[in-house]
């Protein structure tokens, strides 16, 4: 749309706003509240639109029957992850770079980062994760910390999540029950869980 035509279209709305601008020098509290409410409504609508569009896109590109998500979490209090590489079956390796702010957020929140979404046919699959990072307490020039773990699972025709977590693990790869109480032989490593939503 050319510029004059566009402005002609917007003119009625701008006219209303111009009235608001004239009052802008010292807006009263009810005016501020009203203006904020209108703006907030627009923000809210946009946020809901974003969520709805995301859901539709996921539904189409990754139908629930085949949707598989791979996540990474960090429960070690001084590990900062810098990179994670995921390989599903014999597919090409997908490498995700993790910025320092993300690594800190991941470690502090003990939340999860979604590394990728993929379509997997129901049946047996194998997901391999290689994670590179460094301990906050490591000396300068120290070798990076590398952890690897693979999980084999049977994909069901439902959304499936494969969650890898860096944590204290018992021999055999099982997670320690508590981050503070550790049994003999426990080590820092990755463990994996395959999860799906409770029906």
């Amino acid at each position: 749309m050319n510029r004059p035509a566009r402005w002609a279209l917007l003119a009625p709305t701008l006219l209303c706003w111009c009235t608001a601008f004239a009052q802008h020098a010292a807006p009263t509290e009810p005016e501020l509240l009203k203006r904020d409410q209108v703006a907030e409504q627009l923000r809210l609508e946009t946020l809901r639109f974003n969520a709805a569009a995301q859901a539709v896109e996921d539904e189409v590109r990754y139908p629930r029957l085949t949707r598989t998500a791979v996540y990474l979490g960090v429960e070690l209090d001084d590990l900062l992850v810098s990179e994670a590489s995921v390989q599903i079956d014999e597919r090409p390796v997908v490498t995700v770079k993790i910025e320092e702010t993300q690594a800190l957020a991941l470690q502090r929140s003990e939340g999860l980062k979604r590394l990728l979404l993929a379509n997997l046919d129901p049946g047996p699959h194998r997901v391999h994760l290689r994670m590179t990072g460094q301990y906050a307490s490591a000396k300068e020039g120290a070798e990076p910390v590398v952890m690897e773990h693979a999980v084999e699972f049977e994909k069901l025709p439902k959304t499936t999540s494969v969650v890898f977590r860096a944590r204290w693990t018992k021999p055999g790869g099982q997670a320690e029950r508590s981050a503070f109480i550790r049994t003999g032989g426990s080590r820092r490593g990755l463990d994996a869980q395959v999860l799906r939503e409770q029906p």
């Binding site: 996540y71 999860l112 690897e148 773990h149 693979a150 084999e152 463990d191 939503e197 409770q198």
Partner: peptide
Amino acid sequence: GPVLIESTNSPGFYKAGSDQDV
């Protein structure tokens, strides 16, 4: 670094919206 290959015998479940929800 030894790579553990784990085979799951059954998936875990989480309740939608719970703390365990991914």
